[in-house]
């Protein structure tokens, strides 16, 4: 059993415990235990949540590895910030596609099918799984699906998958402290005064 699978199991056990705790609270035991639910309309807002806390996750070990490899193709480490997988973007993607809501359910289908396609296409072209491809090989594959308007007809659906993965990866990455630092977002701190844009900004925008 790999580390990743162990983690999956831990998450599943945690989910079952959560579900059991929820049941007594909900007054409709049979139903609550069988169907994963959302967080409801009055969730605890002050708590910190992690993927797997609220509903069971989906990815198998292989799927998780493929997603991590793709996330890092989309956002690799560079001199300013770490890679997507280094800040646990794959966990977020798993949380996202596992969520019991309609938008996420639609994305779940696209992502699961997309992961399968990615590995099949890698096998077809290079006789390897996607995670085992060389960087140049990953790039050759991703170049065909990175922009739907220019993708060949056979690659339209995979291109939608790539686009979804890029949106989710970027969204998850830039909402981490590392991502915010990369973008030089410096707000969310209390100030005594709001002074408007500083002089260098006014000069940059020719608003002198």
């Amino acid at each position: 059993m790999s580390d990743v699978e162990r983690m999956d199991r831990r998450e599943a056990i945690k989910w079952m415990l959560t579900a059991a705790a929820t049941v007594s609270f909900l007054k409709s035991p049979g139903l609550a235990a069988a169907v994963p639910r959302g967080y409801g309309q009055d969730p605890k807002l002050m708590e910190a949540y992690n993927p797997g806390d609220l509903w069971p996750l989906t990815f198998s070990g292989d799927q998780r590895r493929t997603v991590a490899a793709l996330c890092d193709v989309i956002l690799p480490a560079d001199e300013k910030s770490p890679s997507a997988s280094q800040v646990k973007v794959p966990d977020f993607i798993d949380e996202w596609i596992s969520a019991p809501y309609p938008t996420q359910a639609a994305d779940r289908k696209l992502v699961i099918e997309g992961i399968a396609w990615l590995d099949q296409e890698s096998q077809k072209r290079f006789r390897k799984k996607f995670v085992d491809l060389a960087e140049a090989e990953k790039k050759r594959l991703c170049d065909d699906i990175c922009f739907e308007p220019k993708a060949a007809r056979a690659f339209k659906r995979p291109a939608q998958f790539f686009s979804k993965m890029r949106d989710l990866t970027a969204g998850a990455f830039y909402t981490t402290p590392e991502g915010m630092k990369d973008l030089q977002y410096i707000g969310n701190v209390p100030l005594t005064k709001f002074e408007g844009p500083p002089p260098e900004v006014l000069a940059y925008l020719k608003l002198g």
Binding site: P76, K139, C146, F147, K150, F162, G171, Y174
Partner: peptide, 20 residues
């Protein structure tokens, strides 16, 4: 503050860039 969806659809400006 960056939020999920911050760069949704950025590909229309970048032609589908990824990576560095």
């Amino acid at each position: 503050m960056p939020r999920l969806g911050i760069f949704d659809g950025l590909e229309t400006l970048t032609g589908g860039s990824y990576g560095r």
